[in-house]
Amino acid sequence: MAGRDPWLGRRPLHLRLRFLQGESTGSYVTRLAARNMRPVEQLLASIGAGPMLPVEPQYTEMYVSRYGRERLANLSGCSVAELSLRLISLRDEFLLSDGSGDDWEWPWDARAGFIVQACSLCAARRATRAPAWLILPDPWHVCLRHGRWTDNSRSLQSPYIDLREHPGVVRAQQRLNRLRKRLGYAAARWLEADALSVLTCVGYLENPSQSMDEWGRLAARVGEQRARPVAQFGMLTRLAWDMAWLEERRRAGRLSAEDGLSWLRRVEQRYDVAFNRPLASWISGHQPLQHTRPQGEGVGTNGRDQTEGVGHGPAPLASLQDLTCLPWVRMPNEMDRLFL
């Protein structure tokens, strides 16, 4: 952009800031300004030119140009490579186009992902007292260190759900972590997405407020919309774990038609007969892989590459509803843009 000051943002700020895993760029910039006792508008002026006043980071994400990313890296006292690694929205695919004329913008809608409140205890370990915000592929986050579930509700009265009252959710996240370690993150995400679609098809705990157990009590306290993903999470991870048994054999080229039928019978006995139809549809779209395949094979009837999770993976902020190959798609909790 013509007229840029060549010395703009060249000098690092006096006080550096520790990163939060998964933090949004808007949250980091706001915290960096507060750490150095500057208005965020002043820090943004050091990054470059922008089209509007900054938006509070709990509402949307901030994006920068290549030039703005370099200036922000200088101000934060780290390299562009480190900053892009720590803040996902600073990666090349999210940069403003070179012809945009702006070095930063704070649009009303995040381009990808959900703004989720960070665990306040994790933030406090990094000397942050004010709320910090994450940009994540799904509208929830489980902190195993402190036993908290946070989401994108922006509630001031109940900023998190205490998982000491819901130990099954902690076990579910641990199960999911084991699945990701066993299959790889990408393949586990595909399975998690398909498992969520199956739960949508069967209507599993569609309205937890109607139950009289812990989920009904949670829904009465925080609302049905926030309680639903918490209530579904245990079943989601159990189903994904069971689907992994079949997926491992498919990827190894050892899945027979009899394997699929016997697996369906076991799942029907474990869960409910309502799961049979969507899971049969899932199996039909995932034919066994062969170690040597003619060119063009390996793509399911749904169009998703059947080698998914092998050598490549989903976009970093692709949500479960974007990843599933099944037609029943609805995220359990979408609360973005509550300020409109």
Score class of each variant (00 low, 15 high):
I115H: 10
A118V: 00
A118I: 01
A118C: 11
C119E: 00
C119F: 02
S120K: 02
L121S: 04
C122S: 05
A123P: 04
A123Y: 03
A124W: 05
A124H: 06
R126D: 00
A127Y: 00
T128W: 06
T128N: 02
R129S: 06
R129L: 08
A132M: 11
A132C: 09
L134V: 10
L134T: 12
I135K: 05
L136A: 10
P137D: 12
P137K: 13
P137I: 10
D138K: 08
D138C: 08
D138T: 11
H141Q: 13
V142P: 01
L144N: 04
R145H: 03
R145G: 01
R145W: 03
H146I: 11
R148P: 00
W149N: 04
W149P: 02
T150W: 01
D151I: 08
D151T: 14
S153F: 03
S153R: 14
S153Y: 06
S155A: 10
L156H: 12
L156V: 15
L156W: 07
S158K: 15
P159E: 02
P159C: 10
P159V: 13
Y160P: 02
Y160W: 15
I161M: 07
D162N: 12
L163Y: 06
R164C: 02
R164T: 03
R164E: 10
E165S: 07
H166P: 00
V169W: 13
V170E: 02
V170A: 07
R171D: 09
Q173Y: 12
Q173G: 02
Q174R: 12
Q174L: 11
R175D: 02
R175I: 03
R175L: 10
R178I: 00
L179E: 11
R180N: 04
K181Q: 09
R182Q: 05
R182H: 02
L183I: 05
A186I: 09
A187P: 01
R189A: 08
L191W: 05
E192W: 04
D194M: 07
D194Y: 09
D194N: 13
D194K: 13
D194L: 11
A195V: 14
S197W: 15
S197G: 12
S197M: 15
V198S: 09
L199N: 00
C201Q: 15
V202H: 14
G203Q: 09
G203N: 14
G203Y: 15
L205C: 11
L205I: 13
E206W: 00
N207G: 05
N207Q: 15
P208I: 11
P208N: 10
P208D: 06
S209Q: 13
S209W: 05
S209R: 15
Q210L: 15
Q210G: 03
S211G: 14
S211T: 15
S211R: 15
M212N: 14
M212C: 09
D213L: 11
E214N: 13
W215L: 06
W215N: 14
W215V: 01
W215K: 11
W215Q: 08
G216T: 14
G216F: 04
R217V: 08
L218I: 13
L218Q: 13
L218Y: 12
A219M: 09
V222P: 02
G223R: 10
E224T: 08
E224F: 00
Q225S: 08
Q225W: 00
R226K: 12
R226S: 03
A227H: 04
R228E: 12
R228N: 06
R228K: 14
V230N: 07
A231Q: 14
